[in-house]
Amino acid sequence: MGRNLEHEFSMLVREIRKEYVGNGPKEISTRFIGNWAISEMRGNLTNVEKFMITSEQGRQTVHEARTKLVKEIYKRPEVLVKFEKLTGTRVVRLFSDLNIEEDIAMTVFVFEDEVQRKQG
C-alpha cells in the first residue's frame, strides 16, 4: 500500500521549507479540493522568531519576512517542478499567510487542473 498523495505533498512542503527556511513545520496537513491543495502548518517559528514577536515591531518584521520568503521560494522553477511532478499538473498561483500569535501558516496552491488522488 503506497502513501497517499496528501501525505506525500505534506512531506514535500516540509522538505522545501527545511531547505530554504532552515526549519520545517512541526505538523502539516494537506487537503485537495478540486484544483487546490491547502496545506496547514503548525509550529513554524524558530526560537529567534519567537523571541522577536514579543514586540509589535518584531511581529510585523517576522510576518512580513516569512510571508515574502515563502512566496519567493515557490516562484523558483526547481521548486515548482517538484510539486508539478507529484501532482501531474502545473502550479498557476499560490497564496500564503502566517498567523504569528497561533504559529499557524496556510498555503494554498492553485493548479491548472484538478489534482487526482493516487490509488493506494
Rank of each mutant, 00 (worst) to 15 (best):
Met1Gln: 12
Met1Arg: 14
Met1Cys: 13
Gly2Lys: 15
Asn4Val: 12
Asn4Trp: 10
Asn4Gln: 10
Glu8Asp: 01
Phe9Thr: 11
Met11Gly: 03
Leu12Asn: 04
Leu12Phe: 08
Val13Ile: 11
Glu15Phe: 00
Glu15Leu: 08
Ile16Leu: 07
Ile16Phe: 00
Arg17Thr: 13
Glu19Lys: 08
Val21His: 06
Gly22Asn: 02
Asn23Phe: 08
Gly24His: 01
Lys26Ser: 14
Glu27Tyr: 11
Ser29Lys: 10
Phe32Met: 02
Asn35Gly: 01
Ala37Asp: 05
Ile38His: 07
Ile38Glu: 03
Ser39Lys: 02
Ser39His: 05
Glu40Ile: 05
Glu40Asp: 02
Met41Arg: 05
Met41Cys: 03
Arg42Leu: 10
Arg42Met: 07
Leu45Thr: 04
Thr46Ser: 11
Asn47Cys: 00
Asn47Trp: 15
Val48Pro: 12
Val48Ile: 10
Val48Met: 08
Val48Arg: 10
Lys50Gln: 14
Lys50Gly: 04
Phe51Thr: 04
Phe51Ala: 06
Ile53Met: 07
Ile53Asp: 02
Thr54Glu: 06
Thr54Asp: 06
Glu56Thr: 03
Glu56Tyr: 02
Glu56Ile: 01
Gly58Met: 00
Gly58Gln: 04
Arg59His: 00
Arg59Asp: 04
Thr61Ile: 15
Val62His: 06
Val62Ser: 09
His63Gly: 04
Ala65Val: 12
Ala65Arg: 12
Thr67Tyr: 04
Lys68Gln: 15
Leu69Ile: 13
Leu69Trp: 08
Val70Ala: 09
Lys71Glu: 12
Glu72His: 14
Glu72Thr: 14
Ile73Tyr: 00
Tyr74Ala: 04
Lys75Pro: 03
Arg76Pro: 11
Glu78Gln: 05
Val79His: 00
Val79Pro: 08
Val79Tyr: 02
Leu80Gln: 09
Leu80Asp: 03
Val81Ala: 11
Lys82His: 01
Lys82Asp: 04
Lys85Ile: 12
Lys85Val: 10
Leu86Gln: 02
Thr87Cys: 01
Arg90Ala: 08
Val91Lys: 09
Val92Phe: 06
Leu94Trp: 15
Asp97Trp: 05
Leu98Glu: 00
Asn99Val: 09
Glu101Trp: 10
Glu102Gly: 15
Glu102Trp: 05
Asp103Val: 07
Ile104Asn: 15
Ile104Gln: 13
Thr107Val: 13
Thr107Glu: 15
Val108Asp: 10
Val108Asn: 01
Phe109Asp: 06
Val110Cys: 08
Val110Met: 13
Val110Phe: 13
Phe111Asn: 08
Glu112Gln: 05
Asp113Tyr: 10
Val115Gly: 02
Arg117Ile: 15
Lys118Thr: 09
